[in-house]
Amino acid sequence: MLKRLLTSREMLLFGAVAALCALIATRFPGFVAPGNLLRVFNDTSPLILLAIGQMIVILTRCIDLSVAANLALSGMCVAMLNVAYPDLPIPVIIAVAVGLGTLMGMFNGILVWKLAIPPIVVTLGTLTIYRGIIFLVSDGNWVNSHEMSAAFKAFPRAEVLGLPVLGWTAILAIVVFGLVMTRTTLGRAFYAVGGNPHAATYTGLNVGRSQFWAFTISGALAGLTGYLWVSRYAVAYVDIAGGFELDVVAACVIGGVSIAGGIGTVGGAVLGALFLGVIKNALPVVNISPFWQMAISGAAIIIAVALNARATREKGRIILKSAEKPA
């Protein structure tokens, strides 16, 4: 199993992230101090959470562009709930956020499954719908820090063994979904459906239903992240995390998830997110303009896709029996 986790693509990416850190350390040694690395990880946690969900969706040959809008709507709803009922315990708040996110994910999934609408169209539509609903429920008003209860804001920042709960949530998601993807029939179905939908149908799998579950998982993670985001930054408004869905897709692509479906791992998506997180956190400290940040993450996406395309092409067709892997 360990061998599978450390397949060359993930190792290569891990090396790239490490090399990037080393490069930054030459200019700013403090960056690689353990405390700072934990801070970077914690800061990247929302991206990691969403990238795991997106990875599963992309694996089934779909895409979920509504994750950031889902995050913002779930976040706004729990923030307003907190304002209205400040004594509501945090587990209830979390359950509501995950529940709302799950429903929004299911709505995407139903449209893709039952109406067979292309996922990019469905989620472009729901992206706009979810953002619109935020405006409707909030009247365009902000929920500010002073309106939120102390417990609401404290949860993601509470430190356990030196890492805030936000970071621990990402670690929990990595472990849980790492297991789901490699050790459950559901995870296997995601790979099969994305790898070859025709073949999956013939083996008795329901392609649409698998895609529905992928969207549901993505939505649930977006809802959870919605609460964590709003409470950590202690503010909720209509445009929260605007455009963040593109970072999420970028993290997946950099992490070796094939846009054509069927190929991708939780580890890859996490490393892809960390790569972007390191760039985002490091460039300001080495005095590089934020506009370069965008160019650099853009270049990283193109390089990653080019490398992945190359890796799959080099195999070629095996024609001679003797060229097959030896028995």
């Binding site: 790898g195 070859n196 073949a199 999956a200 013939y202 083996t203 008795g204 190929i263």
Partner: peptide, 18 residues
């Protein structure tokens, strides 16, 4: 090829899928 094999999955996972 098109309706049977899932080439990105390992051999054993293809066999056990149904």
């Amino acid at each position: 090829g098109k309706q049977g094999a899932i080439t990105a999955l390992p051999i054993f996972q293809n066999v056990t899928l149904p």
